[in-house]
Write a protein that binds this DNA or RNA. Structure first.
Lengths: 345, 345
DNA sequence: TTGAAAGCGCTAACAG
DNA sequence: CTGTTAGCGCTTTCAA
C-alpha cells in the first residue's frame, strides 16, 4: 500500500552490472547500446517497476512535455469541450496539461501564468477573452510561448486562434430577417470583451444590410454569459413594448435561461417569440425547443490550439493550419426549432 | 518576446556577492539570514524577475505541490463542478493540478495513473466510478496516495468520498409516491457501475416501503448517463403501455434529453408525465420546466476531496471531515416544476 | 559499445 | 549569520 521504494536508473545499473549511463541509453532506445545488454536492462527495468522521473528529465533537458491551460471559468460547457479537444491531441503526444481558471480575476490570471512558468510548462494555452495588449505590457511579456485561444490577440502575440463570431451573428440575424422578423433584440454580455463587440457588430451588420438598425430599446445587456443572465434578459424583453419578435442571445447559456423565463411567463417558443443562441454547446440540441444557434467547432478549436502549441515546440503536426500564426475558424448556422416566422399580429 | 534568459539563484548570488545558499535562505524567508542581506537579495530577485524552478525544488524535496485529477469524461457538467471545487481549495494552498480523462478506457486510466506518478504528483484524485478492487490488484497497488471521489471504494483504498445516492433516489421516489404516482419508471445507466446499482436500489427501497415493486416493464436501461440516452429512454417510455406516470432518470443529463423527446411528442411535463433527475447540475434549475432532482453537493465534493488529499500530505485543513478516511455526503431533495400529481385518467 | 564525469537549479546538512 | 559541499535522477559530452 505504501511507497514501494523508488527505483532509479542507478539501482538498475547496479543490478545489471553496467553504468547508469548505459541504462539511460538502453531505456531511451539509443541504438548505440548492445542489443543483449539493452534487452537485459529493459527486462530488469520492467521487473523492478521502474518509472523514469519526469522531474529529473525536465530539469536536465529543459523540456517538460507539459502544457498549461488557463481559462476563465472552470465549469463552462463551452470551454469544457475545448479542453476535451486539447486533451485528445495532447494525449497522443505524451504531453500532460495543467489546468486552472482565474475566475474573472486578472490578478489571478497573471499569477497563474507565473506559476505555470515556474512549473516549467513548455507552452501556454490562454483561453482568455479579456487579456489585452496593455495587460501584456504591464507583465513585461510572457515568459513562455503561448497561443491565444478564442481571442483575436494578433496585436499582442503572433499566435492566436479564434472563431469568426461576427459572421456568425450576421448569419443568425439574416436567418431571422428571412423569417420575417423586424423587431430583433440582441442580448449582450458586459463581460464579453471582444467577443461581445464582434457578436453585436454582426447583428448590426445584417440589420444594416436590410436597411434596418439595431433599435436601442432592443440593444440589451446582461452581466455575463451565464444562465442567470438569460433570465435577467428575459425580464427586459418582457418589459419591452412593443415586444421584440425575436431575440438573439450572446450565447446558448443565456438563451437557455431566457427561454425558461419566457416559457414560464406563458410565451410559446417559437410561436410567440423566436430565440437564438450562439456556440452550439452540446446541450443546445437537447433543449425544448431545440435551439437555433451558430455552431462554433469547440472540440476543433481545442485540437488546433494544442497542435499550434505543439508545432511551436517543434513537434510534427497533422493539421497544416496549425502551422499558421493566426487561425480563424468558421462555424455554421444551425437552424433548429426555436426560431420561426413572427406571430401574425 | 523570446525567452528572457532564465535567472537562477546562482546568478542572484553572484550579483549580490553572497553564496547561492544564502539566496535560497533569503528567498525562502528562513529567519537565519541578516535582514539587510535578505532585503537586498529579495530586491535583486524581484528586479531580475527571478522565478524559482519548481522542477528543481521538486527533485530535491520530493514534493511537487501538484495533484493529479483523473476522471472519465472531460466535458461533463457534474465533474466540471467537482473540478471547480477542487481547484478552489488547491489554489489556496499553492498547489497545481494535472487534469486528464480516460474516456471510459480502463487501459488508458491505468496509463494516466502511471504518467501522473512519473510526473511525481503528490496525490491522486480518482474520480472514477468504475475502478474496482480487482483492477487495483492487477496494477499492483497505486504508486501514490490517492483519494477516490464519488466511488465507495472502501474495500480497496482507505480514502474515499462519496454521496449517499441510495437515500437520494429513495427520497425522490417517496416524493413521487406522495404525489400519488404508482406507475413509476426508472432510467438506468449501463455504464453506471456502483452508482447505477445504488440509485436503482433506492427506488426499489421506496417502492417496497409502499408495498410496491419496480415493475420490470418500467425498469429501463440506457447506455450511459448522457443526454442522448435520455432520448433513448423517452422512446422506451412512449412505447410502454400503460405508460408510466412518472420517470426517474439516472441523472439530470438523461432527464434533459428525455424531456425534449417527450415534449416534442406532445406530452406536457408535469401535467401528463412527471420527470425527475439526479445530481442537480447547475443547469437543472434553468430548464423548462425546472427539474425536480436530488442535489448532490458537487462543489463541496471537490473541495472535500482536495482537502482530504491535502490532509494526507500533512497540510492543515479547515474542514474536520477531511481528516476522515471515508466521507459520505448527504444531498437534498429539490422539488421544482417537473413533477406533479399524475393526470386523472 | 561502454564508463566516468559534469551539471540542470535547488535545498539542506555541516562547518565556520 | 554565511559559505562549502553534497546530491535529488536524469541526460550528455568526452574518452576509452
Amino acid at each position: 500500500m505504501s511507497t514501494p521504494k523508488h527505483v532509479t536508473i542507478k539501482e538498475i545499473a547496479r543490478r545489471a552490472g553496467v553504468s547508469h549511463s548505459t541504462v539511460s541509453r538502453a531505456l531511451n532506445n539509443l541504438p548505440v547500446v548492445a542489443p543483449e545488454t539493452a534487452a537485459r536492462i529493459r527486462a530488469l527495468a520492467h521487473e523492478l517497476g521502474y518509472m523514469p522521473s519526469a522531474t529529473a528529465r525536465t530539469l536536465k533537458t529543459n523540456r517538460s512535455r507539459v502544457l498549461g491551460v488557463i481559462y476563465n471559468r472552470i465549469a463552462d460547457p463551452f470551454y469544457s469541450e475545448v479542453l476535451a479537444g486539447i486533451q485528445s491531441v495532447v494525449h497522443r503526444y505524451g504531453y500532460s496539461v495543467f489546468v486552472s481558471a482565474f475566475e474573472y480575476d486578472p490578478r489571478r490570471e497573471e499569477g497563474l501564468i507565473r506559476t505555470m512558468a515556474a512549473r516549467q510548462v513548455d507552452a501556454l494555452l490562454l483561453c482568455s477573452t479579456t487579456f489585452t495588449a496593455q495587460r501584456l505590457q504591464e507583465m513585461g511579456g510572457l515568459p513562455i510561448p503561448a497561443v491565444f485561444v478564442h481571442n483575436r490577440a494578433t496585436d499582442v502575440l503572433p499566435h492566436s486562434i479564434y472563431h469568426d463570431d461576427r459572421s456568425g451573428t450576421r448569419a443568425l440575424t439574416q436567418h431571422l430577417l428571412e423569417l420575417g422578423h423586424r423587431r430583433i433584440a440582441f442580448g449582450g454580455n458586459a463581460r464579453g470583451g471582444l467577443l461581445h463587440e464582434q457578436r453585436r457588430q454582426g447583428v448590426v451588420d445584417a440589420l444594416a444590410e436590410a436597411g434596418l438598425r439595431l433599435d436601442p430599446a432592443y440593444d440589451l445587456m446582461a452581466p455575463d454569459g451565464q444562465m442567470r443572465s438569460g433570465a435577467i434578459l428575459a425580464e427586459q424583453v418582457l418589459a419591452c413594448s412593443p415586444r421584440p419578435t425575436a431575440i438573439l442571445c450572446f450565447n446558448d447559456m443565456q438563451a437557455l435561461g431566457l427561454m425558461q423565463v419566457l416559457q414560464t411567463a406563458g410565451l410559446r417558443i417559437p410561436d410567440d417569440i423566436s430565440v437564438a443562441g450562439f456556440d452550439d454547446i452540446p446541450l443546445a440540441a437537447f433543449l425544448y425547443p431545440a435551439l437555433t444557434t451558430y455552431h462554433q467547432p469547440q472540440w476543433e478549436l481545442g485540437e488546433l490550439a494544442a497542435q499550434a502549441a505543439l508545432h511551436m515546440l517543434g513537434e510534427p503536426v497533422t493539421d497544416p493550419r496549425a502551422t499558421f500564426d493566426v487561425i480563424t475558424l468558421q462555424g455554421r448556422l444551425m437552424v433548429r426549432r426555436s426560431t420561426a416566422p413572427p406571430p401574425v399580429p
